[in-house]
Design a binder for these strands. Structure first.
Lengths: 152, 152
DNA sequence: CTCAGTGCAAAGGATTTGCATGCCG
DNA sequence: CGGCATGCAAATCCTTTGCACTGAG
């Protein structure tokens, strides 16, 4: 695919480093995908990514998202919707939660708050440990209706 | 399929009522599926359900789980693993969270604690409302290593 | 020249569906 | 009898993969 104006940013450098640690490079296609995900403030599906960058081949998108996921650059999240969704990893964007619309499937980001994080870590981790479980991280989703799908 | 000893329980009656509200009936196949899910203390995959009850046809399992899900009898949860997992709805079993093993994909239940529930409701719901989001319920998963997959 | 990345098209695999059969009311 | 649940097999469709091509070093 053809890249345009490859102005590198701090984010690009960080991502490039992550990829290099996996013996992978930040190719134009990968940068393109990263840019789309960075521009969005919510996790995107493959079709959404392809719509935003029609020059991307579908197979390249899938293939590179696998690479980017292995390099911990992006995170894949599966929902009840037809398509999986991708977002930049929390290490790059900060910890956050998701607002999942039970009607249209849309997923929005919601920044984490210190109060909740603490409660979760303290109360839940303890219970998990009892089950012999070693917690790496957590996921908190709110399921409900997004502003577009609210009746009134 | 052939059912054995259809001894009805309180749970069965509740489920039957839920199904009836959707113009559906609690057939032997459906009761069979419900029984398997009830016996397990964790969400099961379709193959696990079929292993437990070899007399079930795969298509019937899929088809009836759709019906049971629409009737809010079971809840489907999708993970990064190949198969989706099913559990009885929280209305029937009580609110709980999940321990998701990042290594083997196993999912265990973890009862909810009042402290965490309160923190989540207070701190997070408020932020969601700001985004014009109407929360119906939440999902909290802990991702890490289960006792079987812990190194030492 | 070599090798990784790319794009097209075809394959893979969990899930869904068409259709004929059987059962309950 | 009538209609729904069942089971088999075939279809669906998101995702993955084989293969030939291209460009960078």
């Amino acid at each position: 695919m053809a890249a345009n104006a490859p102005r590198p940013t701090r984010l690009h450098e960080t991502i490039s480093a992550l990829l290099h640690s996996q013996k992978q490079r930040l190719t134009p296609t990968r940068r393109c995908i990263v840019d789309v995900l960075e521009a969005a403030d919510r996790p995107l599906t493959i079709p959404e990514i392809l719509d935003a960058r029609p020059e991307l081949a579908q197979s390249s998108a899938y293939r590179n998202l696998v690479v980017l996921e292995q390099a911990r650059v992006v995170h894949r999240l599966v929902t009840h919707a037809d398509f999986a969704r991708y977002e930049l990893a929390e290490d790059l964007t900060g910890h956050h939660h998701h607002l999942v619309c039970s009607n249209c499937g849309r997923v929005d980001d919601l920044p984490a708050t210190a109060a909740v994080e603490r409660s979760v870590a303290v109360a839940i981790d303890e219970a998990a440990r009892h089950a012999g479980f070693v917690t790496e991280h957590h996921r908190l989703d709110l399921v409900g209706l997004c502003s577009d799908c609210t009746p009134e």
